[in-house]
Computed example of a mutant assay.
Amino acid sequence: MLILTYKKTFSLWLLLAAALLFPCAVQADITIKDSQREITFNETPTRVATLSWELAEDVIELGVTPLVVPEIKAYQEWVAKPAMPSSTMEIGNRAEPNIELLAQLKPDVILISDTLKSLRPRLERIAPVVFFDTYRADHNNAKQADWTFLTIAKLLNKTDMANKKLAERDRVLMALKAQLNSAFPNGVPPVTSIRFASTTSAYVYGHNSMPQYALDLLGIKSALSLPTSQWGIHQQRLKKLKAVENGIVLYFKPFYQEQKLQASRLWQAMPFVINKQTASVESTWTYGGAMSLKYLAEALTAALLTVAL
């Protein structure tokens, strides 16, 4: 009996010593709160399925390769940054992921946004689901993007990296703002950013849109006043952009009718075109995650600098 007690005590001491010497070997549960509920994981997920682009961005920025992402070719064209890892698999489209394939791949966790909210019960038969209500009219989409990023970072044991990324974003924004102030000594004129729907209509980014949040952080006012919406966008007939008389209009690529637009009389009659106060913006995702604000600010600044020349 004494021998058994001694062995048990000795084993306990070994476990305690291991915990002190190798703290990573003993991991506490991870509890996070998504947009609906609190979820606890026994260990850090490694096989992470991301079923929306903004969540895929966050995971990649944190140095984790997503197991799956929808519409990878389109992501590479429209989102571009951060680059999609070559080992990430295609999982169908953003509205209808391939659930059968997802089940076969056995992820540790599935990250979804509002588009797939109704599928949560079905997806939970495969793996724990973390839901993020990323874009809404009644909250600040930029702040929500940061909260989502930090929540995912906690889940993936990457909080230190996330904080460093956000600090780096702030430093980049300050540098870009100084660059613009130097290029526009009298102040940057008000700016409106758009994405063309056709040669006669456009989606105008206003309050609660990520492009406008990026412009706000650069100290630039909007050239048009628009009401708040879920995505911060409003589709307008192109002729309504005539209201931007003394401001700058920047339009996001890709736009495959750009040559046709440039030749149209309607476009040529715009005050900002006549005054050479317009430029294209390299492809940058306008509905992205926390770090997309940095990429948007960089792309918008590069376009504005062409106007300042």
Rank of each mutant, 00 (worst) to 15 (best):
P107K: 02
S113R: 13
L111Q: 11
D114E: 15
L111D: 09
R122Q: 08
E90H: 13
L101A: 13
I126Y: 03
A103C: 05
S118R: 02
T115I: 15
S113M: 11
K117S: 14
E124T: 00
D114T: 15
L101N: 12
V109E: 12
A95W: 09
S113D: 14
E96W: 07
E124V: 06
K106F: 06
L102F: 06
R125Q: 13
T115W: 11
A95C: 06
Q104F: 04
D108R: 02
R120P: 00
K106V: 11
R125F: 06
I110W: 06
Q104Y: 08
P121Q: 02
L119K: 14
L101V: 12
L119Y: 07
L119H: 01
D108C: 03
P107F: 00
R122T: 09
I99P: 00
E90D: 15
T115G: 05
G92R: 05
K117I: 10
P107C: 08
D114V: 11
A95H: 10
L116N: 08
R122N: 07
R94I: 09
L105D: 12
I91V: 15
A95E: 13
L116A: 10
L105H: 10
A103N: 06
L105A: 13
L105N: 10
K106P: 01
L123E: 04
A103D: 06
A95F: 13
S118T: 11
Q104G: 09
P107E: 02
N93V: 03
I112E: 09
S113V: 10
L123M: 08
E90Y: 06
I126V: 07
I110T: 02
S118Q: 13
L116W: 03
E90M: 11
Q104H: 12
P97L: 04
L111G: 10
L123G: 05
P121G: 06
I126M: 01
P97R: 01
L116K: 04
N98K: 03
S113P: 09
L123C: 00
